[in-house]
Design a protein around this nucleic acid. Sequence first.
DNA 1: GCCAACGTTGGC
DNA 2: GCCAACGTTGGC
Length: 160
Amino acid sequence: MAHHPRYWLMKSEPAAFSIDDLAAAPGRLTCWDGVRNYQARNYLREMKKGDLALFYHSNADPPAAVGIVEVVREAYPDHTAFDPTDHHYDPKSRPDRPTWFMVDVALVRKFPRPLPLDELRRQAGLRRMVLLRKGSRLSVQPVTPGEWAIILKLAGHEPA
DNA sequence: GCCAACGTTGGC
DNA sequence: GCCAACGTTGGC
């Protein structure tokens, strides 16, 4: 039996890396580096090939869900943590005992229009979404199948 | 730019 | 183990 895909949401600041940057990347693929939060790291490690994630623009005007990516490589050590010149360098992560991990994701599609945060907040069915919880700052977070269906419908796609 | 919420650090 | 100080996130 095939793996049942799970759904996620991954945040990126568009000034640092936007969905258009991903669309322009070779193979429309990127490694999702720089996650330095344990809970987000744990979610990264749960991800399986074929899982799907919302690409979310944080610190944006407006903050919005802007598309879908697919996990194409499961968690492996985040080498940027080993590089003292990297902004995300972390000396406690070592190649023989890595603390931080990343996955590779590929662009599935950019939504025809961004789905702004305030619009998501107005959906009754999304009230419990991790993204919308007060104080929630997780940069990698799970999305339920129900939430996924609502968001895809908002984006103009009928649920699969 | 402000600031609330959260996570981490480190003294004790 | 407590908790104050500090740094970061991210909406507004």
